[in-house]
Design a binder for these strands. Sequence first.
RNA 1: GCCCUCGUAGUUCAAUGGAUAGAACAAGGCUCUUCUAAGGCCUUGAUGUAGGUUCGAUUCCUGCCGGGGGCACCA
Length: 580
Amino acid sequence: MQNKIINLIKDALKNLDIEVSDIALEHPADLKMGDYSTNVAMAIAKNVKSSPKELAEKIVVEIARLNLDKNIEKVEVAGAGFINFHLSRKFFAKSVEEIVNEGNDVGKNKTLSGKKIMIEYTDPNPFKPFHIGHLMTNAIGESVARILEHSGAEISRANYQGDVGLHVAKAIWGLQKDKKLQDQSYSNVIQATNIGLAYAEGSQAYEDDPKAKSEIDEINKKIYNKDDKKINEIYDWGFKVTMEAFEDLYKILGTEFNFSFLESQMAEIGERIVKDNLDKFIDSPKSKMIFEKSDDAIVFKAEKHDPKLHTRVFITREGLPTYETKELGLTEEKFKTDPDMDLSIVITANEQAEYMKVVGKAISLIHPEHEKKMFHITHGMMRFAEGKMGSRKGNVITGESLIRETIELIKEKMRERDWDEEEKSKIAEMVGVASIKYSILRSTSGSDIVFNREESISTEGDSGPYLQYSYARANSVLEKAKLEDILPDPHAYPPEIFEVEKLLYKFPEVVLRSSSEYEPHYIANYLIEVARAFNSFYGNNLIVDKADKTSSYKVALTYAFTFVMKKGLHLLGIKAPGKM
RNA sequence: GCCCUCGUAGUUCAAUGGAUAGAACAAGGCUCUUCUAAGGCCUUGAUGUAGGUUCGAUUCCUGCCGGGGGCACCA
């Protein structure tokens, strides 16, 4: 439709002897102003020495003469010289029909077909709790992955985990100090929680107690050398338990990883790269060196290549690789895993943004062919509307506790529903995850968000559960339609055009925009609009009604809504329960 | 000090250089002999500041003010 209108405008301009290469066609902010709008008249008025309004009128007359398309109801001039296109009843009915036919494929596009993209996100560390930051990258990463998939890309999901390092030593120190925490008779989740507690104890002691600090440093060496049998045993157990606990969470969150990279392995690869490129010149002048020695450390003076960047240490004075080096190794490994990879996306917290640029620069110097194949997305911090960081039990809120507590709150809300308990639990889980994910995805990635427990689980207004509730109600209408034998018929439309129809056909455009900008929030905001329009339609119309000849159209429209909503939620990584 | 980023209703968020800057929460009123009232309908309120570019700026550029992040051996 968009192209049709653009061509129509072009033809009209041609008849007026005006040539314009680029015609902007957009949706007016207000549905009353029509369905499509162009500002060409305003843009070119100056060149053709005419007032925007007069020119617009001329173009409209020309369009009226040309237009034989039944999809366009009327074309008019408005405002300072906008030309607004109102689409016809028939067009919207046809859109509904198309959506119903597409079903699960609704909103798909092929802009990325044939492209291979790897996306790394979540990245929790064994021996440490799954914290809220992990929840943020997971929500964004999973959604971006699904959106790109819907644009035809072949996606692989990667997880990167810190299997060695001081945090492990701290946890093991804590476990040795308090043997109860090593009790393996508990469930996996409890064991993992205990390891998290041990880590917290170890961290505290590392700061407060010099003796503990040296003990932990000692353990750290032993982990690295793998020469202490006792420690190896605890390590193997703790690694397995915490990783399995993460798997449980991924199931709840709806993520399945294809690759898992471990920090210890990336360190070796990274070190090799740094050493291979030490004192190596990119161009002839010495200033263009990649890695060089400075104060006994090996550093990359990125500001020599780009004044906006800064120096970072890659190998410490002690000869240990830093995170930068590991990241270097990780990137190398990713491209080795899939040599045909077209894009590597990484999602981390905001504070990594600057150093990722430096690492990205170093990689681009070593592998110029990778320069345009790396993209970094960041997420902000989650704050809590209630103020305190403490949970109801007084503990620090982790990503895991937030998920579990939110699900419990939903369960309480569902108490009056007389469904069986297992079903209720399943639905509560879907709704709980939706409320958290939606809170994260409704804003631009990278911005800090405020999580308001009450608002996020409420179906009033701007929330994940509101979207799910709209879907569930629509679904229930469709059940009733089946019972009453009313089949969807997109041809039995009434003269009235419903607002929800004016939104549904825009879904593919929204997906496309989200995909090209790697921004899920466009979909989140769109779904709220659609849900609101549908709820309004639902509230003001009896959809299933044997006495109404247009009932079968309204049923078709309801189907179209459920397809778009279900798919839209899926793209956000949210499930759509049939009832709630 | 330098670099990046963000300042929009009381609050939490939107707005591909366009029209009367959208929602939601909060406040008040109405609405279930109708498909889930966890819903719908109605009523108030905002672009940090000073310039510039443009027919047109929340959006682009510059200064200032105010948040957040980063700037050598932590990740």
